[in-house]
Every structure is written in structure tokens, then in C-alpha cells.
Design a protein around this nucleic acid. Sequence first.
RNA 1: GGCCCCGUGGUGUAGUGGUCCAACACGCUGCCCUGUCAAGGCAGAGAUCGGCAGUUCGAAUCUGCUCGGGGUCGCCA
Length: 596
Amino acid sequence: MYKDIGCGEVREKDEGKIFRFAGWVHKRRDHGSLIFIDLRDSKGIIQIVFDPSKSVDSHKIALSLRSEWVIEVKGSVKKRIKGAENPNLLTGKIEVIATEIKILNKSKTPPFEVNEDINIDENLRLKYRYLDLRKPKMQKNIKTRHIVTKAIWDFLHEKDFVQIETPILIKSTPEGARDYVVPSRVHQGNFYALPQSPQQMKQVLMVSGFERYFQIARCFRDEDLRADRQPEHTQLDFEMSFVEQDDVLNLVEDLYKYLIRKISPNAEIPEKFPRISFKESMDVYGTDKPDLRFDLKLVDLTDVFSNSDFGVFNKTIDSNGIIKGLVAPGCFSYSRSQISELNQLIVENGGPGVFTLTRTNKKNNDLEVQDIKSAFSKFVNIEKLKESILISKCEEDDLLLICAGSKKIVNQSLSLLRNKIAEDLNLIKTDSFSFAFIVDFPLFEWNLDEEKWDAMHHVFTSPKDEHIKYLDSNPGDIIGQLFDLVCNGVELGSGSIRIHNREIQEKVFNIIGYSSSEVSERFSTILESFEYGAPPHGGMGLGLDRLVAMLVGESSIREVITFPKTQTAFDPLFDTPSLISNQQLTELNLDIHNKE
RNA sequence: GGCCCCGUGGUGUAGUGGUCCAACACGCUGCCCUGUCAAGGCAGAGAUCGGCAGUUCGAAUCUGCUCGGGGUCGCCA
């Protein structure tokens, strides 16, 4: 070993001890005779003092040191002189008086400063990712990820889960996301695909009798990237046999409470994760991934505003639309430009625009038309206006925001406004993880473009037992045993109780419109396995990148992935993807046609 | 594929038709300095302003195309 102790590990109690340290020159402060070096390693930073009166040779070498050089230093730990302590460093009360130094490696001047935390061009960061990862923030992010992963292993191991690896080279299944494919040399013209998730394999493992499986699994999809989407992401994938929905939810709830307590012991987290039905979530929050750190709620005003003289409302109701409102508390005096900003937000996202309503400080019952300020107050009778104020609980210092239009658009718009208002008014609790399960999703959703049913989640989700009978008559009425875990407005994962019966699975394929030849081509293995005693089973897939990003307060998952790709799925560090040799192409029997 | 933002010494920014052969901070190089930790002082090097084409007497600045990065919609069961 080159070192006896980590730079960040030394404390006052070590005074007088002689240690060897090794690490990188974080910062050099040269006072002529006296030279200070902040030495950094994976454990932190410590100040090394080079004093010519203590060691002439060491001081001479220290003169040549530059940022990011790798050095080994021997010296004695000493309490800093009074007034020279640095409260920003864990090692700030002590320092090391160097007696020996060895330069282990020099460094070119880095393309950006490792010891500073400023926004560098993403391309440059990724090209020099090895330097970027040296930054203390990135070190912390990646280590947090390790701690989370370790905690998952510990927790699930204690609960009798078995970690099982599944293949990366699997069969391509064209539904869902676009597959990454790998050509086969042995079977020319044939391709493997990289898994979008280990879904079918883990279900087969349940048929195999493992009962409790988990895997920290890499998942691939060839789709466009986002701040929270990379071509490959990691999910905690688990599956359990002989369980009902609540068994799965309770396990995940315990696991996530355990993880949060490990990483942020002081964070606020619900003792019991609320279970909110999909319908309620859409009605009350306008979205299936509500941010529950604040409790603004939408109110339905469709009935209240029916049969008015206001054209917009009537047209909306005639075309099966809805009218909903959201109270922005204390925003009575919002200026024209503030309201226009809200309006713009909605319009930019394809929404209809927003109506506002405010009222005077008279008692609700005494309100008259002139007490209510709104674009439509003259067209809606006073009783209905009062009722809308009563239902929405719009007080004198509040601002009622109203949207009218199709159900989808209104919910989407008000959900955006809900988040925006909360942010503007500082209603979002910090250091809080407001987890919830969204449950009772419909099993199918109608695909307007193709005029057919699509699976809401995936094709293996089981209907609620009492809804199985609708498979033949009303697929749209079926509620699935299907659930999402959401936290602070982010979907962290979803899961379901699966179908374990061949007939039901075939009916679902049928509703989605797969022909029997398609079904046997893609799903014959899992269907056949179901005929050999498949146990009832269910599980989840939970995004690890998003979870860790949330835990360390990052908005992009690139900050918690060691070697991520750019928005064009390119890796500037290793220059990937790249051409392959003609020999490789020949072996694979592939020709590249140059696109014009 | 659509829309939006960004691209100026090594890094981050300012400059948005002539006052700019480009400014500031950090970094870098050299010198001075024994208590700094965003060290300080002095001196210096370093950029044809992402690329190409155009408009103009004149372009970092305006226009078109293009490349790269980011965000977002589509897409992502």
C-alpha cells in the first residue's frame, strides 16, 4: 500500500501520529517559503504543509506540484495553529507537516477544473468523464448508488429473495419500445435483442418454483433520450409467487422506507404510503403521478356550470368535455402578466387557456354578481357562481383557475398549473419523499389512431378477478391488478399481478389484436410454461437511476450513471457507436448500404 | 421528425451592425511572499467568436444551411 489512511479520515485524536497519504493535488497555495497542498483522495481532503524548516527536500519538490498530480506524502498530524482552522473541512482542525514526498505521476493541466463545481458543456464532461467523476459531487452520487444497491441486496436477501441473472442476448419482441439488436454469427441473418426488461424470463422463473426472485437488471431500449431516459437503464426487478397485490405493495413500501432511512435519515417520508386509485388521482390531481408534497386539489365544476349562457362552457359540455378548477391560494392579486404567464404555460402544452375567478370578502351567501370577477360572471347565474366558489373553497384572497375542454387536456393543463403554482408559492416541502401507490388502473386503453385496445401497462397484467368476465364483453371496464410507485411527481416504477393461466392470457392477446400466429411466434414459450403448473405471481420493475437521482437531488439521471450517453445516444468518451471492420461484417454476413 | 435554448482564449461568461485585430473571472506561465484554505501582489501568454455560404462599405453580432450540446413534444407497453 502507498498509504496508511485516507485523506478525509484523519481527526484531532490522531495528533502526533505519522502517516503516509496518497492522492491527487486538489489545490496548491504557495506562500513562498510555506506551501499548502489540499490533498484529495476518495475519502476526502486534508491540508498538507510543506515547511522548509522541517524538510528542505520536500519543500523543493512541492514547489513543482500542480493540480491533479498524483503524490505520496509522509508526515505527522498536527493541530492547526489558533485561528487557522477551516470549519468547511472535516479535517479542518488538523494538518499534516510533510517530511517526505514522492511524485507518483504528473498530470497535464485538466480541460476543466476538478476542484470547482460549475456547469461545463456536457460533451466535454463526457469526453473527459474520468476527470468529471473525480469531482466530489460525482463521487458522492456514484457512492450513494452503491449504498442503495447494497441496501437492496441486504433487504431482499433477508426476505428470502434469490438474486438470479438472466440473459442479455434474448429474443426480439417488437411490441413496446424499439429493441437494440445484435447479429448472430453462427445463425447468419438472425438477431438477438437486448432485453427491455427481464419480464418473460422472471415469470418463467416463477414457473420454475423460485418463488422470490430479484435482479438489479440492465434494460435497453432504442428510443429517443431525455433527462430521465438513457438507452440503457437499471431497474430493480423482482417477482414473487403466491402473492396478492397488497403483498407486493407492502414489500416495496418497507424496502423504500428502509432505503430512504439509509440515505437520508432526516427526510420526511409517509409512515404508510397512500394507495390512490387511478381514477381518484386523475380526478383530484389530473395526473397518474401526482406530486404529494403539497396538497392543492382540482375540483370538478362541470355540473355546476352546465346550462349556463357561456358559450365556451356549453360547447365543452356538448362535446363530452369537462370543466375543472384549481384554487391558487393567496393569489387574489395576481397581475395580468402573472396570469398571462400561467396561460402561456398551458397553451404551450397544447391546452385551451385558463379562466380566472376572484371574489370579494363578503360572506359566501351574500355574494352578488358584482362581487365576482370573471370573464363569465355575466353569463352564469349567481347561484351557480356561488356554488362554484363553495365547492372549490375559493376564499377572498384566492384565485380560482378554470379550464374547460376534453378530459385529457383539462387534466393535463391543470396538473401543470398545480405544479407551477406550488413552485411559485413555495408550497413544495423540501427534504420530503411523498411516496404513493397509484392502483386500479384500467387494463386496456383505447388507441384512437389505430382504433384498437392497447395494454395500459403490459400484456401480462392480470385483470381483477371479478372483472375477468368482462374480457368477452367490455374490455374497457376491466380494472387490472396493476400499480405504479410514484414519489414527488415522478414515476419510480410499476408492477402487477400477472396472468398465470393460458386461456386468460390468450384472451388478452386476442383483445389487443394479436393473431394466433403472432402469439405463437412471440409468446409460445411463456404460454406453454403456464400449462405446467404456473403459480399465481406478481412483481415490479423499479427504476434505479431515477431513484438515486432523486435521493441525491439531481434532475438528470446522467448525474448518477458513470458513463452515460448524449441525447444522440453517443458516448464521447469511447467514441461509441463506431464502424466495425470489413472482416467483422463478413463474418456476420452483413452489408452496409450507404444512405443517400 | 417538430418546437425551444445554447455554442466567443483551457473553463465559465460579457459583448447582439463600426467605439471589438474582442472584455471579465477562474485556470495557465514566470517573479515576490511563513498561516493560507475562493490565499494575496506584480508581470505575461493564450480566441481568425462551432463550420459553411450569404446580406452589408463593414459581421462575434443579421439571414440561410449545417454540425455539436441541452430541454421538450412525438416516441418510451
